Simulated scan of single mutants.
Amino acid sequence: MTKLKLGPLSDDKPVKLAVELPAELHRSLVDYGRLLADPGGPPVEPLRLIVPMLERFIATDRGFAKARRSGPAAKRPA
């Protein structure tokens, strides 16, 4: 199987989201979902990929983490 940054997706209750994607990005998400699917199984829908990809991107962005720790946004109450 191809080594991908995303692993198995959790089966959380979906949240409705309306977003327009460039056609090329949508094709890439469709291809990614096909590669992420279990062998012989249906492809993962692009909508299910967006949140884990954004979470992974934010979690691995060192510049964002550093700015968040030291910037004005870090001083906001939770």
Rank of each mutant, 00 (worst) to 15 (best):
K16E: 10
A59P: 02
L9E: 04
S70H: 12
R68E: 15
P22D: 15
P72V: 10
G7L: 00
P14R: 11
A23N: 06
L54W: 10
L25H: 07
A78T: 13
L6A: 05
E45K: 03
R34Y: 06
K3H: 12
P72L: 11
P46D: 03
R27W: 03
D38P: 06
G40Q: 07
L36W: 02
T2E: 12
P39G: 01
L21M: 03
R62V: 13
R76S: 10
R62F: 03
E45H: 11
F64A: 09
K66P: 01
K16W: 05
L29S: 01
P52H: 05
E20H: 11
S70R: 09
L21S: 01
G71T: 09
A37F: 04
V15F: 07
Y32D: 01
R48L: 10
P77E: 14
E20M: 13
D11F: 04
I58S: 06
E24F: 05
I58M: 14
V30P: 00
A73M: 14
R76L: 15
L36P: 00
P14C: 10
M53R: 02
T60M: 06
V19F: 04
M1T: 10
V15T: 14
P42W: 04
E24H: 07
D11V: 10
F57C: 06
P8A: 04
